[in-house]
């Protein structure tokens, strides 16, 4: 049966790869994006040209009203959300001593508040239908910490505690909630790293290279299946075997 998947921050990077993967597996996919409508449309074209169904929906997922609008629109055009992938995230890196409060708030709102808002909106129909899959994208930064990323790491660690709590609250209703924590993945977010940093990072990865967005997407798509019904509250680290 076709399921409806909503992927936040899906115009580029890991989110786009997740949207394509879920669509390729026969789900109808809503591509949420914050600003880059051109990239979102491109992602949608990839989905529809492969004969799969999808839509794009613009919304700032850190804003309660916009999240309500997002879920209303997805419900209207595709149906209630069965699979929610909270992927939207930003980074505003700085050492704590130099970090602006505004950058703390911006990162925590976009990365963590959004996860709460979207889960709350998605859970209502999921509880009624006794089926649901929630996959929240964290980061190895949230597990190990990362100098210069205290705000990002805090938001990503928060996602883990939140997800485990949700898993306990709704497990009895056929709903699973898991975290996928990527390591270094080739995306716009890691493109800015200097060659030295990239080389040092690669040297600490057992696989010896940065990961591809689709390598994260395949982990997400497993957790979205019926086969993963007994896996909940887990953190699946997809980092090529990083030594932290």
């Amino acid at each position: 049966m076709t399921k409806v998947a909503l992927v936040t921050g899906a115009s580029r990077g890991i989110g786009r790869a997740v949207a394509l993967e879920l669509a390729g597996r026969g789900n109808s996919v809503a591509i949420n994006y914050a600003a880059n409508s051109e990239a979102a449309t491109e992602a949608l074209e990839e989905i529809t040209s492969a004969g799969n169904e999808g839509i794009t929906v613009k919304a700032d997922v850190g804003d309660p009203d916009e999240v309500e609008g997002l879920f209303d629109e997805v419900h209207e055009r595709l149906g209630p959300v069965d699979i929610l992938v909270n992927n939207a995230g930003i980074a505003r890196d700085a050492l704590v001593l130099r970090m602006k409060t505004a950058h703390w708030d911006e990162v925590v709102n976009t990365n963590l508040r959004s996860v709460f808002l979207c889960c709350k909106a998605a859970l209502r129909p999921m509880v009624r239908s006794r089926w649901g899959r929630i996959i929240n994208i964290s980061s190895v930064s949230g597990i190990a910490g990362n100098a210069g990323q205290a705000n990002y790491a805090a938001s990503k660690a928060g996602i883990i505690g939140f997800t485990k709590s949700v898993a306990k609250e709704v497990g009895s209703r056929g709903i699973t909630a898991n975290v996928v924590a990527p390591g270094f993945i080739d995306t716009d977010m890691t493109n800015d790293l200097s060659d030295d940093v990239r080389a040092a990072a690669s040297a600490s990865i057992a696989v010896g290279r940065f990961g591809l967005p689709r390598e994260v997407a395949s982990a997400v798509s497993y957790l979205a299946t019926d086969d993963a019904a007994y896996v909940t509250g887990q953190v699946l680290v997809v980092d090529g075997g990083m030594a932290l």
């Binding site: 209502r124 509880v127 009624r128 609250e169 709704v170 009895s172 209703r173």
Partner: peptide, 12 residues
Amino acid sequence: VDSLGVVELLMA
């Protein structure tokens, strides 16, 4: 009815 069940009832 567990606490989530009460929430479900209210939604219903």
